[in-house]
Nucleic acid binder design. Structure first.
Lengths: 201, 201
DNA sequence: GACAAGAACGAACGGTCGTTCTATAAAGCG
DNA sequence: CGCTTTATAGAACGACCGTTCGTTCTTGTC
């Protein structure tokens, strides 16, 4: 890895955790230059524009997510166990990597959801990819017979996302220590409702 | 209402819908002055500081929420019907009032959750108040026998919040037309699980 | 070690930011 | 009406923004 790639990565490392606190939109070249002890112009040259830097941070975030959340779960047997592992990893991946201010992409989703442009598209694609991954995990759990064949996959993923959002808000805004437990309770209820055959009332 | 109050309200009206698009943190005196056709300093004098303006927007948002979401639901009989009415109102209150860019407070929650200060506290209190309202609605539904006595109220509210967050993201980022339907499906499942007596497996 | 390519710097630009000050205009009141 | 209070305007401030430019220093290559 040449010198250029090396410092570029160092910048991204810093930008990654900085963006966690101030948001991708709140990143500033000046602040970033200060933290990396570089000149503004020197840093700037690595990206060509602020937007390109922001996109790079989002892509960096996606890569780390795949490494930290999705990949380790492959050690679990496919089906419900693997799905559950992803959820558990997902719930505290902001603690695993250096994200003192929460998931960058998730914050960016709220930030750019009504501002058309490349950033919004990047966020959209990242979250779409996650949903597809989750959808496939659910599909495998159906195939293995752990979930009912008529399980509504999209609905399942929709609710998984809700659980995640609620957990993050509880943790970050209210310092709720029970957030993880609540999340798993909700997850188990979701699984149960799509696994059992219910007794009709 | 004197002239001062009048223009102050006009400013807040504009700030309210502007904040919906750019976030409470993204508000700027200059832009707001332009939109209201006032001078920056003239507008500024009504609040004394930007932070005070932002707080005013958050309070304005709370008031409108109570008027548009909570109050109309009082027409429903107490219990599950009223809870459901609140949820329905909640889900599309950003359409009812002028919020082209989504709920201001909800966006602010993600924006300020890791930036200590009065804004964070205001957001926190607003969301806390909402949770208390929801909690009471759930408690009434327990009293009326529509939900089981052992219903975990906090968990119930936790999941309600999740449903809301997921709905907003689906609508705003993915233009998902089915978001509302999904939300109500999730809500009904939540109610069902806390109402029926399940057959033990 | 010479030389070209790439990396980093420092200064400067035009803009916007929130805020302050002073002066003028309007509103409210007797 | 006149007088006081209040509201608004305008110009200016220092700070920071993203970006550009020319220069200098550091790499990597023959």
């Amino acid at each position: 890895m040449g010198k250029g790639e090396q410092t570029r990565q160092a910048i991204l490392d810093e930008a990654f955790s900085l963006a966690s606190c101030v948001g991708v939109g709140g990143l500033s070249i000046g602040m970033l230059a200060e933290r990396t002890r570089m000149s503004k112009s020197g840093l700037f040259a690595h990206f060509g524009s602020k937007e390109e830097l922001q996109l790079a941070v989002l892509r960096e975030s996606q890569m780390r997510f795949a490494e930290v959340v999705l990949r380790p779960a492959l050690r679990q047997p496919r089906g419900l166990a693997r799905l559950r592992a992803v959820i558990v990893n997902w719930l505290d991946w902001t603690r695993a990597v250096n994200l003192p201010g929460g998931c960058v992409i998730n914050a960016a989703a709220a930030e750019f959801d009504d501002q058309p442009g490349p950033l919004r598209e990047e966020v959209k694609n990242a979250l779409l990819a996650l949903r597809r991954s989750l959808g496939e995990l659910v599909a495998r759990a159906i195939e293995s017979g752990e979930l009912r064949p008529d399980t509504d996959i999209e609905q399942f993923v929709f609710e998984l996302n809700g659980i995640y959002q609620a957990t993050q808000q509880n943790r970050r805004l209210f310092n709720d220590q029970d957030a993880d437990r609540r999340a798993l309770l909700a997850f188990d209820r979701l699984v149960r409702d799509n696994a059992e055959i219910h007794a009709k009332e």
